[in-house]
Design a protein around this nucleic acid. Structure first.
Lengths: 369, 369
DNA sequence: CTCTTCAAGACAAGAGCCCTGACTAGAATC
DNA sequence: GATTCTAGTCAGGGCTCTTGTCTTGAAGAG
């Protein structure tokens, strides 16, 4: 803390935090190893372990130096106690709900999923959410210290509720994940939309250590965008940063159209819905793809103007497939920014959610109480 | 620090920082008052003052409690020593250069200005800069710990150099303020563009305590925009966030045009220049103003989509004058965000520069060396 | 003019945290 | 079984903060 009052307690608590962090990195350490890791004396390390054991945050593992590594006396290995708790990582998409339970080392202790009928009915989703959360929590049987949720719809920053924006598909629907998950959560419940979590995973991915300013353009059934600036996801006043459906861009014949309307004009929206028909879009001809590329370039021009990214990463179910058309159109922009497809495979959204859940859990341990 | 090693020095340095900060707020205090302010004991406060006096950061003012406020023994007033140094606040605009020298309380010790011929010649501007900086530095005669500079052109974030963007007016021109001011600066030289500083002042203005996410739209000879997110000015990868000249928006007849091109089509750019002719723009008729309002609304739509501001503040030489037309057009956007003119009078840019200079100076004192 | 009042500042004692260095404990190696 | 080497403990010392007492010195009262 910067505003903490100067006192001896301060330095003691700093010592304890260092010990806890060292145990997060190395899982189990003897007191001598702790002292060496942190750069403190052995007696100090021993005292800190004693205090933390008393508070139930650290426990003697019983292990006594497994493989002979030297010949001296064996040490007692200490590790974080199970009572430090777990975090829940949850994703909510129209296809279903996935919940995982993570320990403080980031390992998944349990995972489950619930499918949901399409179109999603909010009460059905809420029930799936409750059921999945209960299952993974009970499987781990440790206190839940933090819960991080991804949703496939825009999320209100102040309340965590899913919100419907005009003319955009409402994939999951009216839902209040904070309220639904509160009975399972012993700590904060953080909700954000899936595009932001995917961008978060992109930022943390290998080889992206210096990628502190970029935009993640999600082009799928819905249209979204995440802005990462100075290494942080930017959410804006309401959490609606990146809701690009109504951005004005260049449409067919050089007319100014709102981005989402373009797909209506091209007949690429699903019947009776505001969602984009991805199958038909992917099957469209060169002319249509060129029109879409130009429109996306207009969006990229706006991103360049207002976010100044190092690069633009394209994801979503059809974005990477049209990367050629998008790249050709963005190359004509006055300011050049590389546009590339996402490098992530597997579950980028869950990866971002997991990382955030782990951060919150670890923060709850070191801030403790 | 969070990663500081636990030791007794840590708590001592925290104490010293508290004392320095208290003296920044209250200018002069006795040791007893310091103890009460910070919440530490009198002996501790006395020891800290002794240490800081020895290091030359604090000095006995000689004052001895002027107005009788009680009848007990009078105390010695201590204050920050002149050796803590000063900060330079500099603005560079095509009209000229202004330089101020600020002490650690934010008071201007000296101020001077140099006019510059239009169009600005870079070597002429650099000479004016040197001359003005030398004058205010010599007037104050204390070491310069920080220098903050505003420039009326885009600023490269990595180098602090002014950069020319395609198709935008280059008002000041090729200039490297960091190199020019290095001989006068005993600390960091921070450079950013004037729109960002004006937005910074808007954020700090009275009544805007909860304004952490907003956009500042500058509409004058040049076009600019500042994005404030989570209370911080966002600069992006290169420092070019807010360079909106090439944003695609709605032009005459519903065509998609780049924002800056609109003014060329309307014949509102100055002859032989890329700058907007503000006089002619302000004299234009209702139809033209409506077209401009619609185009600005397209820009606002992009800002809403990519920054999600709480409100949009409009400044610049013609922006506030067209607020009616802009407001009418933005009211038709699907998502509503209040658009208002800037409330600041006087010198908003210099106000933002001053505040940043003071922050850097104070940080240099508490971080010290 | 002297005495009283009362807060500033100094001094002393005590507690807490960390460090160094020496000592004890205990398992693997020889 | 003796040796070696490291984990963990103990004792002494330094530093910082705190509480409480004492001294100092100017303002106010008489």
């Amino acid at each position: 803390m910067d505003s903490a009052k100067p006192s001896l307690d301060l330095v003691r608590s700093v010592t304890d935090v260092h010990v806890l962090r060292a145990l997060m990195r190395h899982r189990r350490l003897t007191r001598a190893e702790l002292a060496a890791q942190i750069g403190i004396s052995k007696p100090t390390a021993g005292e800190s372990v004693r205090r933390l054991t008393e508070r139930g945050l650290v426990a003697d593992t019983g292990e006594r130096t497994p493989g002979g590594r030297g010949r001296g006396r064996v040490g007692s290995y200490y590790a974080l106690a199970p009572a430090v708790g777990v975090a829940l990582a949850v994703t909510i998409a129209p296809e279903g709900v996935v919940a995982e339970c993570l320990d403080v080392y980031g390992d998944a202790l349990a995972r489950t999923m619930r499918e949901v009928d399409r179109p999603a009915r909010p009460d059905h989703v809420a029930a799936a959410l409750r059921s999945a959360a209960a299952e993974v929590r009970d499987a781990a049987d440790h206190p839940v210290r933090a819960t991080v949720v991804s949703a496939a719809d825009p999320v209100d920053r102040a309340t965590g509720r899913l919100v419907q924006l005009p003319d955009a598909p409402f994939l999951v629907g009216e839902l209040d994940p904070v309220a639904v998950l509160a009975p399972f959560a012993g700590g904060p419940v953080v909700v954000d939309n899936d595009v932001n979590w995917a961008a978060s995973a992109e930022r943390d991915s290998a080889g992206a250590e210096h990628l502190r300013d970029f935009a993640y353009l999600y082009l799928g059934e819905g249209l979204g965008c995440a802005i990462v600036n100075d290494g942080e996801i930017r959410r804006g006043r309401s959490g609606l940063t990146g809701e690009i459906a109504h951005l004005v861009t260049a449409g067919p014949g050089g007319r100014a159209v709102r981005f989402i309307e373009l797909f209506g004009e091209l007949g690429l929206r699903r019947h009776g819905s505001t969602a984009i028909d991805v199958g038909r879009l992917l099957g469209s001809g060169a002319t249509t793809r060129e029109v879409i590329g130009t429109a996306v370039a207009g969006v990229v021009a706006a991103v360049i103007a207002l976010a100044d990214p190092q690069e633009v990463v394209v994801g979503g179910s059809w974005g990477p497939a049209l990367l050629g058309d998008i790249g050709a159109a963005t190359a004509r922009l006055p300011r050049h920014v590389p546009v590339r497809a996402t490098a992530l495979t597997g579950e980028p959204v869950m990866a971002g959610v997991r990382a955030a859940a782990l951060d919150h859990l670890r923060a709850s341990v070191t801030a403790d109480g």
